[in-house]
Design a binder for these strands. Structure first.
Lengths: 337, 337
DNA sequence: TTGTACGCGTTATCAC
DNA sequence: GTGATAACGCGTACAA
């Protein structure tokens, strides 16, 4: 890396470094003749601006971090694309890290961001993130936006989806179709998102004077196989269940398998709604009716908010909750609305 | 960001900046008493190391770039995870950018990396990348590893998969199952990877004395919907086709939709093989038989190679071609082997 | 262990 | 009006 410095350019052009700097940044009063000469020299020498030196001098930075727990998940891929696009609009560079649900890696990344003078970050924290993590983050006083996973008692900006409304939509849909025995399947105990989704489900039932059955609410890991396993137990014990709202599409897909195995026809004997609208949802037979959360939009909004924070916006922490929509396909049969 | 500087720590601890620096980096001979005092002060003041200042002084960097054309594609998500993991092992930070197949964005990102003093990069170039891009990159003399997409006449390190062998495996599998009317669906004209994959498909047919039909080789965009569209036209014109090798899983999923719509049962009336082994492949019904290219491993290998280049390895450009494997699932029916 | 010049660009102050 | 001088941001490493 035989890099040319601004000083070298200045010498060759017969001007001072101040002049070159001013030309580069279009500031100050430089005569047109001088400007042209400098620009020419810059080009001739193949000068490359050293942003880090400038950042050091200005105590600024154009680099932000994005921490995810699973970049492999298509949902986060979409979100990343949205954020990345937004960052590029503002000429910010994006550092990416994948915690793989490890709090240690997560902490390491954030520390590294601080050392590298990042000017902001977007975080989707690991599941067991300790409060200490947020405390130190808060103390650093660097703009940070949480996304997707809400954390209790944490006063940071947040961008995510309306879990409560999402399952309300799903449950409403099932109720309209005449179902009265509706289960809730999936999510892991202790998850905030899950609690919110169960809230939407329960509240909608109550609105319709249906007493929620706690035994019809079962947890599951985020995999098709565990969804299938859990569903089998549930439907064996309670054959009267005719519909289910699932915590995630991936779980719904597993539930579908089980139903098929038990000889029940999804979309006829049984109605199923998922959550996330992953690509597979439209592919399975019958196509899955699901709650869609615009992942890309979450990324974009987070980027927008982060940028405003970097610009100095110091309003109190904001919560941007994007409304989900119900994508009606075939897994509930055909609706009358 | 009220940051504490090394000089402030030095003053408070009553030592020179040199001493503090040495303590921080465990260099030189510092008495234990002094070391303890400095460490204590460091902690008390909440000092955060300024990596950028150090990098400037040392003319080094700990930041590498990753350029993709579509981070939304699960394949690249996997690859990114592999690379990210490898980068973390070496305490390197990863800049991410998504060109979205735009050469302008791509060039912009690389320029930005140069200005920001990145020490290396991993690139999966946009489809129409002009030669000039590679020339300027070469001139900058910064370690760069190409991945996945091979480019003609470009003398850079490359990590990818054996496209030729991959489709040979796929085609072989179909031939063994007795198919003789096999189509090739997907990929865009002019893509090198696609040419290689078609080569594997064609050569295998020829080995079995089957004359490839050029009309049975059709292009498609990398989306499910376009795969479906293209397949519909193909199967309508040539109903005798009983099997297909797809350029990508995502295309195969679209083809599956079309087949279903046409009343043909995948795995019974029709055999389908994909390429990539994305997560969805194992989730659809029937599960998709596909060529797995270990995306994560490509990322890891690219990271490993990049790191060695950064360390000064100046052997001639290397090509690392990872062998793909055929993952047999259900979309071809059950094999006799 | 310390003093200090240095890496590179910025900008306030000063000179013509 | 134009442009030069030089101190500065912060950590590093060599001479002393």
């Amino acid at each position: 890396m035989t890099s040319v410095t601004l000083a070298q350019v200045a010498e060759r052009a017969g001007v001072s470094t101040a002049t070159v700097s001013m030309v580069l940044r279009n500031r100050g009063r430089i005569s047109d003749a001088t400007r042209q000469r400098v620009l020419l020299t810059l080009d001739e020498m193949g000068y490359v601006y050293n942003q880090t030196a400038a950042n050091l001098r200005n105590r600024t930075s154009n680099q932000v971090g994005l921490l995810l727990h699973d970049i492999t998940n298509p949902f986060y891929g979409e979100m990343t694309a949205g954020l990345s696009h937004e960052m590029e609009r503002h000429d910010l560079l994006l550092f990416l890290a994948n915690s793989e649900e490890s709090c240690a890696r997560q902490q390491k990344f954030v520390d590294s961001l601080m050392r590298n003078n990042a000017c902001g970050m977007v975080l989707c924290g690991a599941r067991e993130t300790p409060p200490l993590f947020f405390e130190t983050l808060r103390r650093r006083n660097i703009p940070a936006i949480m996304v997707v996973r809400p954390f209790e008692d944490v006063d940071f900006d947040f961008v995510g989806t309306d879990n409560f409304l999402g399952t309300q939509l799903a449950t409403q849909h099932l109720l309209r179709l005449g179902h009265r025995h509706i289960a809730f399947i999936g999510g892991s105990n202790g998850s905030t998102s899950r609690a919110q989704r169960i809230g939407g489900y329960t509240s909608k039932l109550l609105e319709h004077n249906i007493q929620p059955e706690s035994e019809w609410i079962v947890a599951s890991q985020a995999s098709q196989s565990d969804g299938a396993r859990v569903a089998e137990g549930l439907f064996t014990r309670f054959p009267q269940i005719t519909a289910a709202v699932c915590y995630q599409d991936i779980v719904a897909l597993g539930v579908m398998q089980t139903l098929r195995k038990m000889g029940r026809v999804v979309g006829k004997d049984f109605a199923l709604v998922g959550f996330d609208d992953v690509t597979e949802a439209s592919l399975v037979q019958p196509a899955l009716t699901t709650v869609s959360v615009a992942a890309k939009e979450i990324g974009r909004k987070a980027g927008e908010l982060l940028y405003s924070r970097i610009q100095g916006n110091d309003e109190p922490a904001k919560r941007i909750i994007l409304p989900p929509t119900l994508i009606v396909r075939e897994s509930c049969g055909f609706s009358q609305n």
